[in-house]
């Protein structure tokens, strides 16, 4: 599904990703962990197509398409979803309008007719229930005045609406209390399917108690320096990142 080969990316001449290799197959859950500044969020931004970063080397194929050649919107329409670490507030744009526009753009891309008003409302209702999002959040402007937890739940709700093939959850657990964390993780788990893959980016192991990964990778200084099964997360929780740093110090 996703094959990343020797990916290098920089921002303002500062190289942040220095040769990432990663393969994600359908249905798999991969966790990417690592200390602050390792390049975790850069990786997710680059995959989603944020033009702030410049890809200097490497290739990414997504469902046999050259991902890096696609615009951000086409990546989304191809089925890539990024749950933002810091979702943006857009006052004046209602959640309903925002989601309907997004859903219809996806449908147009697939050659389908726009969704009818009643179908759309039903879809919203079903997905809200699925991810246990407070019903009146969707009556407000996009993320405006949402608490940290509400914003993250809203990301998962959007994911449920758009039904991506690959979801990248960028630090979705940061700043969440345990209850909100559980709601977010439940949402993710309910959307799990043999075709749908997930990349969970996190600093801590706690989220991985709820969203159990098939693989854990450690990102350090722009490279994946260690990959193993889910037990690696526990080891990192226990020992911290210092031993990794020591082992891979340039």
């Amino acid at each position: 599904m996703l094959v990343i080969k020797d990916l290098h990316a920089k921002i303002e001449d500062k190289e942040i990703l220095r040769g990432i290799n990663l393969e994600v197959k359908p249905g798999e859950v991969h966790a990417i962990m690592g200390p602050n500044g390792a390049g975790k969020s850069t990786l997710s931004s680059v995959l989603a197509g944020n033009e702030k970063f410049e890809v200097s080397e490497g290739s990414v194929s997504f469902n046999d398409k050259e991902l890096l050649e696609l615009s951000p919107e086409d990546r989304a329409r191809e089925g890539l979803f990024l749950s933002f670490q810091y979702p943006i507030e857009i006052p004046g744009v209602s959640m309903v309008n925002f989601m309907r526009t997004a859903v219809n753009e996806h449908r147009k891309y697939r050659g389908e007719d726009p969704i009818s008003a009643s179908e759309f409302l039903k879809l919203m209702r079903d997905k809200k229930k699925l991810v246990e999002i407070d019903s009146n959040l969707t009556n407000r402007s996009v993320n405006e005045g949402f608490s940290g937890g509400e914003k993250k739940k809203n990301e998962i709700f959007q994911m449920a609406m758009l039904e991506p093939k690959l979801a990248i959850l960028d630090e979705t657990d940061s700043g969440l209390d345990i209850d909100a964390l559980r709601v977010v993780a439940n949402g993710v788990n309910k959307l799990k399917s043999p075709e749908r893959s997930t990349i969970v980016i996190t600093h801590y192991q706690r989220l991985l108690d709820y969203i159990v990964p098939d693989y854990v990778h450690v990102l350090y200084k722009g490279r994946i320096v260690k990959s193993a099964g889910k037990e690696l997360a526990l080891e990192l929780e226990e020992k911290g990142y210092d031993w990794i740093k020591k082992e891979f110090e340039d």
Binding site: S71, E73, A76, I88, I90, E105
Partner: peptide, 14 residues
Amino acid sequence: DEAMFYLRARGINK
């Protein structure tokens, strides 16, 4: 730009 990227990342064109 950040808000624009957010919208585009949801499949909404520029």
